[in-house]
């Protein structure tokens, strides 16, 4: 799980061009949207691509992912349970 969280953080940093942010800067349980990293709706779509590309998880839209996208921890939990690759 630790490894997954670290990998996921790096994938999000790379995909969202969070220049200057390191995995250590992101709290596992801090909110990703609004406050926290201040991500927006396009970023949410980008996380959907990460789930599909690296973990074989398909989400139809961002609203389906609302609970999943609360924090890095919640996304990692979801990946653990649903990953197909």
């Amino acid at each position: 799980m630790e490894d997954l969280i670290l990998t996921l953080k790096q994938q999000i940093i790379d995909a969202l061009n969070l220049e200057g942010v390191t995995p250590e800067d992101i709290d596992d349980d801090a909110p990703l949207f609004g406050d926290g990293l201040g991500l927006d709706s396009i970023d949410a779509l980008e996380i959907i691509v990460i789930l599909d590309k690296y973990y074989g998880i398909k989400l139809a839209n961002a609203s389906e992912g609302k609970a999943i996208f609360k924090s890095i921890g919640s996304i990692a939990d979801y990946i653990e349970k649903h990953r197909t690759k």
């Binding site: 995909a15 969202l16 061009n17 396009i42 970023d43 779509l45 980008e46 691509v49 599909d52 590309k53």
Partner: peptide, 12 residues
């Protein structure tokens, strides 16, 4: 080679 994964933050 990575398959079909269009990136929304790039597409915009």
């Amino acid at each position: 080679g990575d398959g079909f994964f269009p990136s929304p933050s790039l597409a915009i």
